[in-house]
């Protein structure tokens, strides 16, 4: 799994690619915590390059979302496809967390 970050207006965008599995997923939470410490509490995770996610990845996402929320921010998602979209849907994460089709939509929210 790789994360590439950039500041875009009020949001910090994390482009996540590769696999978010039991061996790699902790890295996502770490990236989000780095954002939080740097004062970027509103994070958009663009999962367009993410090929795979398991429950370990969901745990990392949920933990990061809770910590960002506790810090006064939030965590939104865009670009889901394939098994990633399927796992978000069946796990209920698609209803639990803000999910947008495109990055433009994710950045346009207030």
């Amino acid at each position: 799994m790789e994360c590439k970050g950039s500041k875009q207006g009020a949001f910090f965008v994390l482009e996540v690619s590769g696999r978010m599995d039991a061996l790699t997923s902790q890295g996502f939470e770490t990236e989000c915590m780095n954002c939080l410490e740097a004062g970027d509490t509103r994070v958009v995770a663009d999962l367009g390059g993410l090929e795979y996610i398991s429950s370990a990845g969901l745990r990392s996402i949920l933990s990061a979302a809770k910590k960002l929320k506790a810090g006064g921010g939030d965590l939104a998602f865009c670009g889901l496809s394939g098994i990633v979209a399927e796992v978000f849907t069946v796990s209920g994460f698609a209803k639990l967390l803000p999910v947008y089709a495109t990055r433009e939509e994710a950045l346009a929210r207030s």
Binding site: S54, S55, L58, R59, L62, S63, A65, K66, K69, V87, V90, S91, G92, L96, L97
Partner: peptide, 17 residues
């Protein structure tokens, strides 16, 4: 699955999948 962010526990998801 219906719990909100604050209530939601982390475990059990693997078996559900």
């Amino acid at each position: 699955l219906d719990a909100d962010l604050d209530d939601r526990a982390l475990g059990g998801m693997g078996l559900f999948l």
